[in-house]
């Protein structure tokens, strides 16, 4: 049987399938459920200074009989406090030490970057993903 072990620049996962940073990676609950289902890694919903999201967030392009062939959102990064996310990262890593948990980050100043990098590493993140595209493409 083919070996699906993946190693991206030192970030290891049992298979190459990761969840992208987005609503499915908003919480430890979701990521544990995903790992349990067989996902190899997850990039946590982008961490930073929590935002305030709006209600009515998504739109879809339906094509003939097919729903959602294109998807559009006006969401921002995480709206949850950093400490909550960090605690859950730690919990996920404890239960799934061999799965890849990558912290997506987006902040402004050098000091903020330094702080959040250390926080994410202390929580046990296996890697960092720097989000240089606004979540909704602005």
């Amino acid at each position: 049987m083919a070996n699906l072990q993946t190693n991206l620049a030192g970030i290891k996962s049992p298979n190459p399938f990761w969840l992208a940073s987005a609503p499915p990676t908003n919480s430890g609950y979701q990521i544990m459920k995903a790992f349990d289902a067989g996902w190899g890694g997850a990039v946590w919903k982008t961490l930073g200074v929590p935002v305030v999201n709006i209600s009515s967030r998504y739109g879809a392009l339906n094509y003939r009989d097919n729903r959602m062939v294109g998807f559009n959102n006006i969401e921002l990064i995480t709206d949850r406090p950093l400490a909550d996310n960090l605690r859950e990262i730690e919990e996920v890593k404890k239960r799934f030490p061999d799965h890849a948990v990558i912290a997506s980050l987006m902040v402004e100043t050098r000091e903020q970057w330094h702080q959040i990098v250390k926080d994410a590493e202390n929580a046990g993140a296996d890697g960092l993903e720097l989000n240089f595209g606004c979540p909704h493409g602005m």
């Binding site: 330094h114 590493e121 989000n131």
Partner: peptide, 20 residues
């Protein structure tokens, strides 16, 4: 900004690119 992060990061750093 990547270099700021690399000043302190101990784990691998992925840079996510915008297609815009």
């Amino acid at each position: 900004i990547v270099s700021w992060v690399k000043e302190v990061a101990k784990v691998p750093v992925i840079v996510k690119l915008t297609p815009n």
